[in-house]
Design a protein around this nucleic acid. Structure first.
Lengths: 341, 341
DNA sequence: TTGAAAGCGATACCAG
DNA sequence: CTGGTATCGCTTTCAA
């Protein structure tokens, strides 16, 4: 414990053998290199005895592999992302990879910095939920030869692996569902954001409305803080609630704000106003009435993302960017009581 | 881009100066070492031009510092932990530290492995929400000289920094609140777990009940999976609901299961049964009726934990374990409609 | 003001 | 079968 700190060299000195031999033993190459059983035992016993742990930094420096994957999401405290993080972590772990994650909060500059830090740390691959405006950096990152899987959002002009859901169609059919129930004045509430998934959801809504000769009612909230958003929501609903029969929310936390506003205005769901939200949430199942939603396939998203990445990790840099995949998964429509006429 | 890969040596060669000078410039020691302005500029310009990023692995290997803190929680997909993770990450980031986190799922073996991996990676400090049975490992970890802050739970016999809440008192006064409202048959539903925070919450309940000459009704669920837990909850309530007037849940996800069971049994809250839960949750605020809860001070917990750790990080190993702190924070009782008689 | 060289702790090539 | 040694990329005395 004291004296010479434990390193492969100190062990070599102590046992009177070379570092090479120890390295082979510790990396399971004893068979392959035909190290004698007794030497192997001697090494393993001593390593056990002093509880030696190889220095992963030194190893990574030498091998160029860190066995670490960076997972960059919008906000780790959103249930959607933390659920994905958990799944991906578990799966990566089984393949010997550690996940190291961070939240971008949709801040492009912060994200660029994060990517740079990870590059400096030489992580082996990236799974990224990109904020807008990050295209150039991602292109650069891909060019570095490390595999990159983009999640949740599509980036125009970035050739890499994607795992997405069919936002457009999902919202189209959810809106169609409302129309089929007999609703006519259907609003869509979203963020004023250029993120592809938001735009696709909006476009799904618009198509459904136009295909059925109805009039779109679209409200785009400032992405800002929660309180501000809720104020905006309240004043929008206050003005419009008499003319709106149903609302489609583009994501779950906006819907939660909407539910608060609806309650505050004393409106009943679904009698006064019907509600559907993108991205299911435990709260929706428990709410009275239960809120109809479009559930994303969290497990499939995670699984596809990590499998895609792992499959690239074996390859050499030149092959990494071959045949980029674009995996588009289907959501599940979960009809509940918030929109039954 | 091609040819010699970017390293401090290749830059040195290209510019015809020494690596030392470059290192000084890059680490802001140019003033101190009185490097000439023109040389500084030359270096910075070239570094900018080729977009050079120092290899953090090599740097850490040399300096023994990784500027990384390990955050080990029970489950990153629990709102409580992901909220803490987010706060801690933000604060660490401002001090130049990266957070790297994992979930233990209360699995002791997995946690030991995690700690070992982090030791190999030479992280600078640890913030840990410990599973039971991890004492020895934590003691060993502390002995390694790296600062360790334990969160949420107390470990008997482990001398280190703690950030906890007053579980005992919080539940005592919540139970007392129910008693003061006139409830007599008050049950406590918890996990069958030896985690200190769970035991303390239980003991707070028991004290309040005994102090008021009532009879404790305690149900300990198997920690197993969610579905199984919900089944247990349902069958417990089915049997006991006629005799129970109020329930205190030891944590939010058990309460959610309880709410499902209560609804399924057609019981009304608070008329048939009153409800209080430890650990507030957005769902409780939105539920009908809104659920009374004991809110933990997430921001204060995070802030104290990271500040404590940062304050130790400056010190040398021998001083790290001096004067271990035990910070106990107060919760906030949030009375809502689920227990008004 | 700047540079040479040692060394952090592992791996991997080449010998023998 | 095992060992010597260069090397990964950087920091940091010590000298000049």
């Amino acid at each position: 414990m004291v004296g010479k700190k434990t390193s492969i060299t100190s062990i070599a000195k102590h046992l009177g053998i070379s570092t090479t031999t120890i390295s082979f033993v510790l990396n399971g190459k004893a068979q392959e290199k035909r190290i004698s059983d007794q030497l192997v035992k001697k090494v393993l016993d001593y390593v056990e005895e002093i509880d030696y742990k190889p220095n992963a930094l030194a190893r990574s420096l030498r091998t160029g592999k860190s066995n670490t994957i960076a997972l960059i999401v919008e906000d780790i405290s959103f249930p959607f992302f933390s659920a994905i993080a958990k799944e991906i972590e578990a799966k990566a772990y089984k393949s010997g990879y550690k996940i190291i994650y961070s939240s971008t909060e949709n801040d492009t500059a912060k994200t660029e910095e994060l990517i740079e830090i990870y590059q400096e740390k030489h992580v082996d691959g990236y799974i990224i939920v990109p904020p807008t405006g990050i295209q150039a950096k991602i292109v650069e990152l891909c060019a570095s030869g490390k595999p990159v899987v983009v999640l949740d959002r599509y980036l125009e002009g970035v050739q890499t692996d994607y795992v997405l859901v069919n936002n457009d169609e999902s919202v189209y059919s959810a809106t169609k569902y409302l129309i089929d129930q007999g609703y006519k004045n259907i609003a869509f509430i979203t963020l004023n954001s250029l993120q592809s998934q938001m735009l696709d959801r909006l476009s799904g809504y618009e198509k459904a409305i136009l295909d059925n000769n109805l009039t779109p009612i679209i409200q785009k909230l400032t992405p800002a803080g929660r309180l501000e958003r809720e104020k905006e929501l309240l004043s929008f609903l206050e003005k419009k609630c008499s003319s709106i029969e149903a609302i489609v929310f583009s994501t779950n936390y906006i819907c939660v704000g909407g539910l608060k506003a609806i309650k505050q205005l004393g409106l009943r769901i679904p009698e006064d106003i019907a509600v559907v939200s993108f991205d299911d949430y435990e709260l929706f199942e428990m709410y009275s009435p239960a809120i109809t939603s479009i559930a994303q396939p969290i497990e499939a998203i995670s699984e596809n993302a990590i499998n895609l990445l792992l499959s690239r990790l074996g390859k050499k840099a030149s092959e990494v960017s071959q045949n980029p995949q674009k995996i588009i998964l289907s959501t599940t429509f979960v009809p509940r009581d918030s929109c039954t006429k």
